[in-house]
Design a protein around this nucleic acid. Structure first.
Lengths: 133, 133
DNA sequence: AAAAACCACTTGCATTTCGCAAGCAGATAC
DNA sequence: GTATCTGCTTGCGAAATGCAAGTGGTTTTT
């Protein structure tokens, strides 16, 4: 079971994209490229394709601009949140601090259920605007 | 933060070793080799070294046999359990079933705190016997 | 006591993946 | 209609992976 999960998300990049989609409201190719980890364009295209094939991510063309695409998490993808949250908690406990996720970590500590609800609410707002087709 | 965590555990093999150490009471090189995922010997040696360098795993020579070594999780390593548990839950929800982790998953569902306590208790028993030096 | 087997690796080598830079087709902006 | 933006693809060297075989020490067998 662990092994099958790792075949999907067990690499350096996949969960970073999920993080961007989940916590940082990123939805476009160029936005993923702008993340501080500097993913290469070919790797990004490959991972987005795999995420779509696995049904974790969906894709539409931007409603007002044909040359742009919007990526979004399916519920299968959103349900990776607990894994990411546990990673953030572990990192906060054992790794030297980086500010990157600090805000989100503080919200985890204060009220994990509230964070979860707020993240999902925020995604649903976006979906209502962008996926209403 | 997520990125730093993934630099440590973001590959196909590292968390499988942690799983073996945590849930399957494996402690020896040959036992990891015997896992159904068939890790190659050089990769195994490499990952064990990295796990030791990161302080997730410790190592002793077998008390009754100089040619054998015993690997065990430090508390830093044990604290990866929540991540693995969330992976198992996600896999159970979305992946076709494999019997592999089924027993453990059922225990997660019935009583997560009890599972956690029992796993840690089991590791502590082992440690009392093997690490009493 | 010698030989065989076990154990934890290491080494060599072919294959796959990664990472970087450049290029490209289609759509939009000017 | 030229330049720019956007989401990719391509080429290529470097690194990681996977497999098979080998090594050095230890223990077991005979």
């Amino acid at each position: 079971m662990v092994s099958n999960v790792l075949e999907i998300i067990g690499d350096r990049w996949t969960l970073l994209l999920v993080r961007d989609l989940l916590f940082f409201n990123k939805h476009e190719y160029k936005e993923f490229l702008a993340s501080p980890e500097n993913i290469a364009t070919n790797i990004l295209a490959d991972r987005l394709k795999k995420l779509r094939n696995e049904g974790l991510v969906g894709e539409i063309t931007h409603p007002e601009n044909k040359s742009r695409k919007l990526y979004y998490l399916t519920s299968k993808g959103k349900d990776l949140m607990p894994i990411l949250v546990e990673m953030v908690k572990w990192g906060a406990a054992y790794l030297p601090e980086t500010k990157e996720m600090k805000l989100i970590f503080e919200r985890v500590q204060n009220n994990p259920e509230q964070l979860k609800a707020q993240v999902l609410e925020s995604l649903e707002q976006w979906e209502k605007q962008m996926l209403k087709a």
